[in-house]
Design a protein around this nucleic acid. Sequence first.
DNA 1: CTAATAGTGTCTCTGAGACACTATTTG
DNA 2: CAAATAGTGTCTCAGAGACACTATTAG
Lengths: 215, 215
Amino acid sequence: MVWTDAQGRALTDHPRPSVAVDVAVLTVLDGGLRLLVVDGPFGRALPGTFLHPGERLADAAARALRDKAGVGDLAFHQLGLYDDPARDDRGWVLSMAHGSASPSHSLPPTAELVEIVDDRSALPLAFDHDDMVTAAVHDLRARYADDADPDALLGDRFTLLELRRVHEAIVGRPLPKDTFRRRMLTHIEGTGELVTADAGRPAELFRRIRAHPDA
Amino acid sequence: MVWTDAQGRALTDHPRPSVAVDVAVLTVLDGGLRLLVVDGPFGRALPGTFLHPGERLADAAARALRDKAGVGDLAFHQLGLYDDPARDDRGWVLSMAHGSASPSHSLPPTAELVEIVDDRSALPLAFDHDDMVTAAVHDLRARYADDADPDALLGDRFTLLELRRVHEAIVGRPLPKDTFRRRMLTHIEGTGELVTADAGRPAELFRRIRAHPDA
DNA sequence: CTAATAGTGTCTCTGAGACACTATTTG
DNA sequence: CAAATAGTGTCTCAGAGACACTATTAG
């Protein structure tokens, strides 16, 4: 049996698009957001690849990160499918944009990180990757608005100052320390441990609390 | 010049997936959420279609709604790309799920509307369409949480009772009328007009306010 | 001691929820 | 008049922001 679409054409008669995945990996460095980019024949671009036959999108995205940028084990999620037929000169290519956030020390030292300015890459990217980056930044901001550190940009344990620096980089403005502390205390819990910096009173180390208590 | 991927294969050598679009159209009827479904060879399913060569996803989704369900002129947005290689027995088919909301009176009288119970279709759907519906319901709820009527489920003018009924259907629980009124007054503005129902004091008609004042 | 950083007490403002009240219509 | 629906006054509670205060370290 051959399945046909509404126009009576067999499925296999349809020219099909190539499907790609691209991943916008964001990180926090020097108090600001940065984006992982790779250089290729089209200039600076997000790490990406074409979907292999039968492959899952998540697997393709992980493969792109590994092969193009040398990073592994990142969590990411879908942002949107970019579908302008003219978005790629090579032909009809749809690309599923993914967003990810990861601590800068987990990226290879050779990784090229460009600044995020005004929710965009400071250096222009190939294809429609600039739009993907803006979507990734907005998505990151939305997910950090109501949680402490959902993407584990910090390690298991962290001080409230470290957590606040991460949030400030993501929202792009300074946050009041007292309000921030009280707001976060519903999402994190103190270990008894103290850690001392160069000067001043030692800070307590906190850890994330599992899930939302209302879920 | 022939572009190749990281494995050195030419792009055109890749077997490519079929790409489909599916649309979860939600509406409010009799105080509850309903879903527009169509009957096909696989049973009840969301209206959908295969992407035609060079076509935009939005155009394909609009075409599916027109051809499969007889509805036009709906706004929708992307929910996610469903990519399980085994999701469709006919072969390798990726499907971009879209969500939409539209007033029930704008749907054809013959449209089949199934109830939404517990964020799912009361009747099971083909493929992975049940998952798409749940995503659409959550998306709808998120977008109505901070706005009056972003998808224009009501007409230009409406009473606060009508608006509250819509929100109650979407969040799935009754809402207190006084709090709801005060919360909505930042998103809507009163016309001077009054409208009288069967009994009781006439209600004022309101309209949506353009955009968020903080944007 | 001072400088520096961590953390708290408290006031104000705003918004949600609860509850009772007033206002305006039909019959 | 009673019934029904629209809309308001007001109290309480919770959370955000502002500001000043206390606490604990290094030197």
